[in-house]
Design a protein around this nucleic acid. Sequence first.
DNA 1: AACACGGGGGT
DNA 2: ACCCCAGTGTT
Length: 350
Amino acid sequence: MDRVIPDLLIWYRQNARDLPWRNTQDPYRIWVSEIILQQTRVEQGKSFYMNFINNFHDFCHIANSPEDSILRVWQGLGYYSRARNMIKTAEIICHDFGGKMPANHKQILSLPGIGAYTAAAIASFAFGLPHAALDGNVRRVGSRFLGLYEVLGSKQSDKIITEYLEQHIPINEAGEFNQALIEIGATVCKPQKPDCHSCPLSKQCVAYQKNTQNELPVVARKKAPVNSYLDYMWLEADGYTWLTKRDNHGIWKGLYEFPSKTRDAETRNFPFEDWIINPEYASILSVKEYKHQLTHRTIYARLWHLSTSLNNIVNKNEFTRIESVSIEAYPVHRLMLKFIEQKETTTHHD
DNA sequence: AACACGGGGGT
DNA sequence: ACCCCAGTGTT
């Protein structure tokens, strides 16, 4: 690789996208950007990054803020455990490391929410430490450049790529080298139709030499999503509505939503008799069906919009009664945003 | 090694 | 529909 590294670095300096987290060496900002960009496209992450650093200025600021306020900024981005792990990491850095990210790869790697990729990215981008940062881009570039048929992301594949890169990483330009490889993967060595003719690595790329760039990398087959069926209760009474905070289950942990029950695919009965004292005194404003597609799950949700009086509602500890107008202060998932947004769009219909 | 974990955009 | 995204933590 030594022969193409100068070409790679020159290419990067001429072609790097101007991204908001690239104009800083601040480990805090680099950390924020790297967490946001986990399994998230650059274009999707930009506005969340700007919003995040405008609301939270350093590690101790996060550590001293309520969980709901961080989740509220994260709302709609997905993989919410990232935000909760950021709080844990911010607390550790604020209390044990004097409020500053340690300039040490092993200590960075030990922090919650920071795995092999993110630790190497922070270590190299912020501190110039020579660790290979293998994300999806670099794995693909490495697989093609070295002509690997090991399954992408497998132990063997990662080991080969990591050892190769750390053997060749320029000791004084580790950060730029890693960013350049990521940039090549994102903009040139794309999953489909790579632009090999404009790639600074092509003259040493095994796949390009053998014309196998379209059959590499070898990717494991994905699992089909499973279906789940839910009834949600959007209950309004005298200007109040009810939410619950998800905690013990897997999905959307820490976010708020309307009270819900799981159901069978074909069930259509009114499911909330035990939450309302006299169902006949509650009016059904609407019943709407929603299909919400996640990566690993398809949710068929039915939203029951109900209206009744306060004294007709069973008091349950797990339900939080809030003023209807204050709902936007609570962090909610995307499906909840779909539920709520219909309110503003149905201000008038015959 | 396999799985759970969101949401969005490209083809 | 299916793929993939500046992946991590748990089982």
